[in-house]
Design a protein around this nucleic acid. Structure first.
Lengths: 204, 204
DNA sequence: GTCTATACAAAGATAGAC
DNA sequence: GTCTATCTTTGTATAGAC
């Protein structure tokens, strides 16, 4: 089960990825430099190039790790039989709430979306893949919940998954500008209400 | 009625704003340079500085003009008595559809949202103001439509306006990455459905 | 693996001629 | 208003010592 599909990486490389991920989420890809990482870790810019030859490579590595981490968690949650579809949905919301609790973090892909046409080609593919995978996963959860009678969805679950995903990403971005955490909570609350069949939201 | 609250500007300045607006919508603020404008207009970088001393000034001017243009149109539409609330809503969608019809354009503020923390302070205020104004306008339309019986909204119209706005902004960003125009249409279709009281969508 | 040093290009910005 | 020329800073990236 723990088949370690992730390449082992040096401790420094991992720290660079950590800082880089954070920097993209807070400042976007074009908005940070190797100097920022250098400052954060106390190592020289040249040392970063040893681990990641180009900024493009670094960006791709950050995206890859981010996607693997989230999508592995999604796959595990989905495969855990105790989880109801409501559980899965609430589970999916957690990182959004985590980011919204910070003053300046958004989803990695959400941050990159604004500068999409300026990104290296491989990063563009990864961002598009991220969007696709998350919406597909959400659609699967909604479809299963619809069939089980957990969710009240008259029409396309694929469509609903798209709207939910768009709203979550949009809410994070708008929230960061306004500082109002309600921006995200409203999205979650509205969808909880829309998807609830009887009118009461029962998670257990 | 036509009280011209917009400062008269030279023809070149206006062209610079046009190109700059386009560049931000396609490449974001950190993703374009004075050189890009220089190339597009066939004038030298120094000439641009004559019209807009700093990039910060240019960005602020672009944002100001963009907001005024959209919000003036929204105010006029709102004040036109023939318009139903459905009309107003469909009217609000039009620029989103326009952007979605291009390969690489998103909302100006949506583009800036991804790099928000790196923006000059005055631009940050304008982006936040844009988000606030648009959501307030949408909430007003939804509230009026709710009272008139045009819209089926059980709960907070403010909340619903937020979710709709988030979803529209998110959809444009995701659409640009995937190229799938459906990303935006799904949002519009779902909200048309949700807001329709009888189940049929009657715009007249 | 990390450092110093440096190359190289691009960006924002200014001075001053025309 | 636009130009040429130039300055300054920053950013990505490489070479080579340790």
């Amino acid at each position: 089960m723990d088949h370690k599909c992730v390449k082992p990486r040096s401790d420094t490389a991992e720290k660079i990825l950590d800082v880089g991920e954070n920097l993209i989420q807070t400042r976007s890809f074009n908005g940070f430099s190797y100097q920022d990482i250098s400052d954060a870790l106390g190592i020289k810019k040249a040392s970063i190039h040893y681990h990641f030859a180009s900024k493009s490579d670094l960006g791709a590595a950050i995206m890859t790790r981010y996607r693997q981490r989230l999508e592995a968690a999604m796959a595990i949650a989905e495969g855990t039989s105790e989880n109801s579809c409501w559980d899965l949905l609430e589970f999916y919301f957690t990182p959004y709430f985590q980011y919204a609790d910070t003053p300046d973090k958004v989803c990695l892909s959400g941050s990159l979306a604004g500068e999409f046409p300026t990104l290296p080609a491989d990063m563009q593919k990864m961002v598009a893949g991220f969007f696709h995978d998350h919406q597909t996963w959400l659609a699967k959860v909604l479809e299963r919940g619809k069939i089980h009678g957990e969710f009240a969805i008259q029409d396309s679950t694929v469509q609903m998954a798209r709207v939910l995903f768009d709203a979550l990403q949009g809410a994070l971005l708008v929230k960061r500008a306004s500082g109002e955490i309600k921006q995200l909570h409203d999205v979650v609350d509205v969808f909880r209400l829309i998807l609830t069949p009887t009118g009461k939201h029962d998670k257990a």
